[in-house]
Nucleic acid binder design. Sequence first.
DNA 1: TATGAAACCGTAGCCAG
DNA 2: CTGGCTACGGTTTCATA
Lengths: 157, 157
Amino acid sequence: MTKVEYNLDHVDYKILRLMQDNARINNADIARELSMAPSAILERVKKLEQKNVILQYNAKINPAAIDQKLLSFIFIKANDIIGEQKVGILLAEIPEVQEVHDIAGDDGYLIKVRTADSTALVDLMRNTLGKIEGIISTRTTIVLQTVKEEQQLVIPE
Amino acid sequence: MTKVEYNLDHVDYKILRLMQDNARINNADIARELSMAPSAILERVKKLEQKNVILQYNAKINPAAIDQKLLSFIFIKANDIIGEQKVGILLAEIPEVQEVHDIAGDDGYLIKVRTADSTALVDLMRNTLGKIEGIISTRTTIVLQTVKEEQQLVIPE
DNA sequence: TATGAAACCGTAGCCAG
DNA sequence: CTGGCTACGGTTTCATA
């Protein structure tokens, strides 16, 4: 992995702050907010995309609207060779698995999973997780209610 | 809380599938993909926004680019009255806290926190979490590496 | 709800200052 | 980076079905 220099300035930060809350804002509006010319904004946004500062533009969809009512976190103990993440990569391929984190402590992963209900979760664990080689054990935490769920980062001044 | 009917059809699902992967796609392109008129797409997208099916449009920003290199999950035991979530609401107000989930089991919350490094995490726990009334104990899990981190949902056909 | 025409406006590319 | 310019095409509205 190569060391990358991002070299962002205050104007970039302002653009990022506007875009992470409203990805569909147009260049003209950003330009007005920052009192700059639209062409300058366009260049900066393109550079932010090229440099992988902006990774993607997502629409955040209400899980309830498409009947994905159950959220769970599962700790997974695996016998992966350190740094290899064979199990992690397989976990990441499951569409219902939104996140896979390699965590400190017990040679394991923490994954975030969304399913319709508990029946669908049990099915997933049996039929999909159960088929992955190298999983030693799992511990499931069910979410009763979500108070906050955002991906916004704290952007410097 | 009132029961809401979303009543989405296959066309809505297709629109959602396109938009959750590229929030900046334009109506004309969606229209071409679905072989429909742009004006019809515009109406549907507006309705999806009104009905809170689409909650927000976010730019996903590379945490490394703005020096937010540490991700942690913290389990928090609290003496909240059930259903009241006083602690949960206070936790949600912290900008570094991206997620707050009320979890089954130990009268507690699971929160997701992003900070620059472990020093900043310790500061946050001491100065911000430490000031919240009602927190009994915390257990912190540090993420060494993230294999996958998405918010995309599995959208039906 | 969907379409298609028309007016409007933002985008993207250019270049001079 | 600004600002002026242009061509193009996307957005939005509305009458119509």
